[in-house]
Design a protein around this nucleic acid. Sequence first.
DNA 1: TCTCGACATGTCAACTTCAACATGTGGGAG
DNA 2: CTCCCACATGTTGAAGTTGACATGTCGAGA
Lengths: 191, 191
Amino acid sequence: MSLRHALLGLLAERPMSGYDLAELFSTSIANVWSAKHSQIYPELGRLESSGLIEVVEEGPRGRKAYATTAAGRDEVRAWLLGTEPDRTVRNEPLLRAFLLWLLDPADAAALLRAEEEAHAARLTGFEQRAEHWSPASPPQRAGRIVLEAGLRSQRALLGWARWAREQYEAQTDRTGAQSVPSPTQGQSPRR
Amino acid sequence: MSLRHALLGLLAERPMSGYDLAELFSTSIANVWSAKHSQIYPELGRLESSGLIEVVEEGPRGRKAYATTAAGRDEVRAWLLGTEPDRTVRNEPLLRAFLLWLLDPADAAALLRAEEEAHAARLTGFEQRAEHWSPASPPQRAGRIVLEAGLRSQRALLGWARWAREQYEAQTDRTGAQSVPSPTQGQSPRR
DNA sequence: TCTCGACATGTCAACTTCAACATGTGGGAG
DNA sequence: CTCCCACATGTTGAAGTTGACATGTCGAGA
């Protein structure tokens, strides 16, 4: 149900079309939530039927800009204050890190190097955005706060990836290759 | 397709039943990936049909412990080395933070306080696990590396939540209430 | 004037994930 | 000896999400 409220919240700031929203969800907001237009358009339809958003502008090429209604704003607030966020984490890169013992230390290090670079790139992007940020309005200040979360966690994870890579590189130096010396026999049955 | 490879990787370390895996995915591994038994059992069936895992032990109450076959290990390695991880992020708490400007500063601060506490709790859990960690085997060392990522990012996000909360508390002090002074009129049409 | 790429909206089949339903058993505490 | 809880495995319908398909238009530059 998050997409629903994400749309409601975004359209509370300024009117936007499905197209605009899809662009947002594939760029800036993508660092927090993402959605494709094939999910956005139907959801906009549902929100409109519920009276939580309304068309406030029609443009060329069938463009319809929506804005959140008063009822819609109430709905977002109720969601923010009345429900617990889903804190479930799904992090494929970390899942892979968990399985790195199955690889040569050299391959593991290479994989972590790629992670490092991904974090560095993301961090650079965030830093550039932070530079040009004007925290003039409340929504912009909220955006800056979220950006700060990105900055801090990317810095932390960049440091982590470097550190992790060095762990495996140390093994690469010591041994010629193969990190998987564990015999196929079960060490302990369970627990 | 991540669950598939998560199972393959976990069962490469030691034989486990669906029940064991479900427990893992609801506790330790949950900080990286999660799955319910209703998803795990059918997936185990498919992996067995594909010859990537096999039953290595049958216990009471119909218990079946699976282990990854040689083909299964190859499959995980190919996945690790041959495919790019999905780095898509979905973070509901941060999505909510993005919409905090819709609330009173006091409510926003309260919400961030809850975030702070969630991060603190998670961090404490990680720290306790780190204390008792014995990095004796390669899988355990990999686990420690993932745990380190958890430690570092929870520390970063705990600091962030505190900082963010203080931002809104500053507003609470200055104004009596209401942060949403933005008139409903559109400030700019688009872009 | 034409062409092409960005703008713009939509549908659909497939897959992932989950909550709920469904069923049964072994072992330890009382 | 009995009861209950943890153990244990499954199925199913609904919801969320995606990639591919589908269609059409406006405007700028060649």
